[in-house]
Amino acid sequence: MIRAILICMLFIFCMKVNSQSFDVGIMSFLNIVTNNKLYEVEKDGLTLNGGGLKFNFQQAYQQSTCNYNIGLELSFNDWGNQILSRLGANTLLNNQIGINIILLNGLALYVDNLAYVFGAEASVFYLIKIKNIDRVKLNLGLRFTQNTKYKTIGNFSFVDLPISICWLFGNRID
């Protein structure tokens, strides 16, 4: 019940943004660094550390302007499933390429035992036009996430390379 209320609150918060663009995407995380206080960690190059779905609302993609965006992601990684709010800002460097910085806050989903998860993500994105409208967004970045409860269980924080592809709804305003 608490979980449902929290998720509804996140959604209402998202809708408060004067959104002119909405995008849905799938993402995957390639792990670079893993932190574990209890056990030895063995790494063998870049390994898949999960993935998920994300939903983003934002004002518009405008060049040379800071555009705010807010969204939700449902993802999984080594410690299980999580729902995170994504509060960020981006700017277009030219007609197609931009940078995006996002703060992540949310909950790892455990039965009767939610855990606070926080993090940050910085990424470069590339917009692809279909019929002269920005429709596809490719993202590549760097992301840090930490689960507060996992310090006494196992891998509790990660630095990942997030890769995502999104479908954009709504028109870009130049």
Binding site: V24, G80, N81
Partner: peptide, 18 residues
Amino acid sequence: FFVGLLLCITHFSCSYLP
């Protein structure tokens, strides 16, 4: 629609914390 979908997925994706 998408957030409703997300809520449904979330409801069934809680795991047991060790």
